[in-house]
Structure formats: C-alpha cells, structure tokens
Design a binder for these strands. Structure first.
Lengths: 192, 192
DNA sequence: GACAGGCTCCCTACTAGTTGGTAGGTTTGG
DNA sequence: CCAAACCTACCAACTAGTAGGGAGCCTGTC
C-alpha cells in the first residue's frame, strides 16, 4: 500500500476543493495547474478528460464516505449516536471551513448539465447514503431508541434532504452555524 | 403597464430556464442568443454584464415569489393549507418539468463563486422565504392548526431546508415524484 | 556491468472553439 | 430628429484537449 501523496492524488484533492466551491463548471484545468504546480497538459495525462477527472473524484469520495460510515457504525453502537456522529461530522466540516459542502449534494443540482457518467456516480451516492440512513433508522426503531414518523425509508429520505438543504442554507446565509441549528433539532425530535 | 413580452423579458425568461438547469456557470450569452434569436452583443445592450443579467433575474424571481406568496396568503386562510399550496406549487413544477428547481436554491450552492451582488440577492431570498414560513407557522400554532416541534423560526428553517433538499434528491434520483414523496409526510407530521 | 527497450511522467507548443465584453455603425419607431 | 434597439466585426482571455518530445527509471538480456 502506497500512502505517499502522488501527483494524481494531489490533482484529485485540489479538484475536490475547487468543485466544492461552485460545482463542475466553476473550475478549469488551469485552476488546478496553478495550485498543484503542473501544466494543464500533464493533468490530461492522469485524467484524459474533465469528466474522467470528476468521475474518479466522485467515486473516490463515495469510497471514503462508505468507509467512514462503516467505521462509524463499528465504533458507535447506538443508532441515535450514529446519526449524531454523521451530522456532527458535517458540522465540524463547516466549522473548520475544511470542505463545507458535500460534493454530491452540490453536483446533484447540476445534474442536467453533467456528463452522464458523473451523474450516475452522484445518483449512486444518494442511494448509498439513503440506504445507510434507512438501516440506522430501522435498527434504531427496532431497539426502541428512535421514534419514526413514517417508514424508515421515508424518514431516511427526509433526513437526507434536510441535511443537504441545511448545507444550502448555511451557504446562503453565510453562516456556518446554521447547519447545526437546523439539523440538531432533527435529532432531538427523532430520539425516542 | 406593459404586458407585451419585450426583448429583455425574453432574455430573462430564457436565462432563467438555462440557469435552472445547471447554475451560473452553465450557460453563456451564446446560449441565450441561439434561443432568443438575437446577437450576443445585443444582449449586452440590455444587460451590460452577466452579473447584471443574473442579478436582475434573481430580483425579478424574488418579486414573483413575494407576489405569489402574498396572493396565496390572501386566497387561502388556513396556515396548513398555505403550506400545502406552497409545496404543491413546487410539486406541480416538477411534474410539468416546467422549472423543476428554485433558482435561488441552485445558486445558493454556488455562492462562493458568484458575483457578490448576485449572492446578496440569493441571501435575501432565503431570508424572505424563511420569514414567510415563520409567519405561517406562528399563525398556525396560534390557531392550534399546527403542532410545532421547536420555535416557529427553527421549524421554518427546517422546512425550508427540507424543501430545498428534496429538490436536490429529486434531481439526483431523476425522479420528479421524489419531491412530493419527501415533502408530503412533512405536512402530515406538522398538522395538529 | 552495460545497455537497449519500454514505460511513466511531465514538458513545450499548439489547436479550435467558447467566454464575456467592446467599438462603432445601421435600423426602427415615436 | 432622436433615442432605443440591434447589428457586424472585433477582441483578449480562457476552455478542454492534442501532438510530440525529453528525462528518469525499471527490466530483461548479452
């Protein structure tokens, strides 16, 4: 296993931070070039086209998300605490200004103008996340820890939507604390 | 009052439908030119710069929204029905494929790369909408028609976030019915 | 040990097309 | 006649992407 940061990794990391600011059409190979210190032609060597770059970027993002969620599931037994940890992760992201937006939430809005391969990855992320949340809610309800207002799936979709909407609101208001202010009451209400 | 569709109106209408697809950076003067049947230079005559165009576009959108909401408030006395009408409006937009996204919700995600003047308009729209929802919830609670889970303001922000998030989910899943599936249970739960 | 071949990575140089925007002249309607 | 509206003809900067070459590095072979 190779943990040293390769050029391709640098490019992906940089592209992610750029895409998180304003989506697919808000950055160019030239922008990456300036930050990473590489010529645009060399970026094409690693990622022949922009859609390749973003497809890989989102796929990698999804893998990290999956890994993070399964690790979180292992470390934290209680379903309510798992939700808390999930939302807490994003709250910390906003506080740090590290990556104050979900890549896929941003790209979802742009789906009509996205290359099909990228759109498919975004779609898959939404399903993945909704599935995970559904599982957590099901277990929480079975254990009597959570009080659902509908089916686990329906509540999961609502939770997902509120989370993404809270990101939009935080951006719109220019207030990082808005995310927590919106999502925290969600948890209090769902706790049995 | 001049109800005939002027050139500037056509440009704005066209730009709106383009911007709704993928945000600020997803369309160009050339795109508008092709649809409206006018040269790009002539668009600059009506809107000197792109940020002017989008600022006016969002301001007009906000006016329409304000007018729509106040009209809705006049026509429908019951607060719960007002919420139903508001969400129903968007549900119909998705069904028609007419304008299946809120201009400001889309632009909110891109705020870091938006011209400041446009960002200010988007911010104002969020506040305007949150204010309206807060008012509806307050009245609904006072009349015993709605059962709030927090303050009216907090519930309004959550409702707003869920609505916007549901738009993202509908796009991500490529399923227009997803919007209603997510938002309808919201109303059932809030109804006293 | 030398050395050729091939591979990865990155470069310079270039392309065609698009971007938002300008200068200045012409048409059109009151 | 005047002004708004629209045009042609530009522009410089930027877009993603290509062609081709050179430096370094491993690997197989004599």
């Amino acid at each position: 296993m190779n943990t040293q940061s390769t050029r391709a990794d640098n490019i992906l990391r940089c592209a992610r931070s750029l895409i998180v600011r304003g989506g697919y059409n808000s950055f160019s190979y030239a922008d990456i070039s300036k930050v990473v210190g590489i010529r645009t032609a060399s970026i094409h060597h690693h990622f022949p086209s922009k859609s390749d770059l973003v497809r890989v970027l989102v796929a990698q993002y999804r893998e990290e998300a999956a890994a993070g969620l399964s690790q979180l599931e292992q470390a934290i037994p209680d379903p309510l605490d798992q939700l808390r940890a999930y939302l807490g992760y994003w709250e910390r992201c906003f506080a740090d200004m590290a990556a104050p937006f979900c890549v896929c939430a941003l790209l979802a809005g742009e789906i009509p103008v996205l290359p099909e391969e990228v759109a498919a990855e975004v779609r898959a992320h939404f399903r993945q996340l909704a599935d995970w949340l559904t599982g957590v809610l099901e277990r929480g309800a079975a254990q009597g820890r959570l009080r659902l207002s509908g089916t686990a799936r329906a509540d999961a979709e609502m939770l997902l939507a509120t989370t993404h909407g809270a990101m939009l609101s935080a951006r719109a208001y220019g207030d990082a604390t808005a995310f927590g202010a919106i999502t925290r009451p969600l948890l209090e209400r769902i706790a049995a």
